[in-house]
Amino acid sequence: MLFTYSQCKEKYGSQYQLNKAIKNAELYQLEKGVYSDKKRESDICVISFKYPCAVLTLNSAFYYYGLTDTIPEKYILATERGAAKITDGRVIQKFENSGTVQLGAVEVEHEGNNLHIYGRERLLLELLRNKTKLPFDYYKEVLSNFRKIIEELNMQDIQDFAYELPKSAMIMELLQLEVL
């Protein structure tokens, strides 16, 4: 499980006790301000923990849900348009219109930690919205995998989310033509 510096300081009482716990391998400092009770944590867990207001999307989320077998080179995080720039080299930041970033976001458990990630319904819409920005073969692979699970998705959520997002007419047309 991951912890912030504040949580660790509260748990151990002082900087001295915190350093002692690290020295005794009761606690591990993974990055500045990020601690764990395990020696190693996956990058996706650390990144989701470090940026709690951001949402994992596109390639990162497609891979997590098993919609592609292509391992993403970088993690893509959606943030509010006015959010601070993320300088982590492992991350590509995608700015979204205010009010739509958390639309369709869910918390899922992964390796004992929570990931803030788009649900599959919102992810389908992100695929359609970014059709021209993704390689054609990759787009077709992910779309094909969405078609296989379309019966599991909540169509009402997809429609509700689509009307909240920019380019809703285009999204609904693509949904009819390519998915259903």
Rank of each mutant, 00 (worst) to 15 (best):
K140E: 14
P135A: 12
P52M: 07
K167Y: 14
D43P: 05
Y139H: 10
E109A: 07
E80R: 14
T79I: 11
E111Q: 14
L67E: 02
T100W: 01
T87F: 09
T132M: 08
Y138M: 10
Y63T: 01
N114R: 14
K32Q: 10
Q93E: 10
A169R: 15
A169K: 15
N97Q: 12
I71Q: 04
F161C: 08
E151V: 05
K9I: 12
G119C: 11
E178I: 02
D160K: 13
T132L: 09
K11T: 03
Y118R: 03
A21H: 10
S98R: 13
A105C: 09
Q7K: 14
R129G: 13
Q15V: 03
Q102G: 08
Y28W: 13
R81L: 04
D160W: 01
L77A: 01
L123R: 10
I117Y: 12
M155L: 11
Y51E: 04
S144P: 00
Q15M: 05
G99P: 11
E107C: 03
Y138G: 03
L174E: 10
Y138I: 02
I150H: 08
H110R: 02
S98Q: 09
K131N: 05
S144W: 02
L174S: 11
Q7S: 13
Y16E: 08
D88H: 06
E73Y: 11
I44N: 06
L134V: 03
M170T: 13
K23N: 12
I86R: 09
S48G: 06
G66E: 01
H110E: 09
L30S: 07
S48E: 06
L115R: 09
R40S: 06
V108N: 02
Y16R: 15
G89F: 07
E152Q: 15
G104E: 06
E80G: 10
I92D: 09
K74A: 00
Q17H: 14
T57M: 15
S36C: 10
F49G: 00
I171R: 13
A78Y: 07
Y63S: 00
T4Q: 04
L175S: 06
A83M: 06
V91C: 05
L175E: 05
S36L: 06
G99H: 11
F95K: 15
V179C: 06
D88E: 05
G33L: 02
L174H: 12
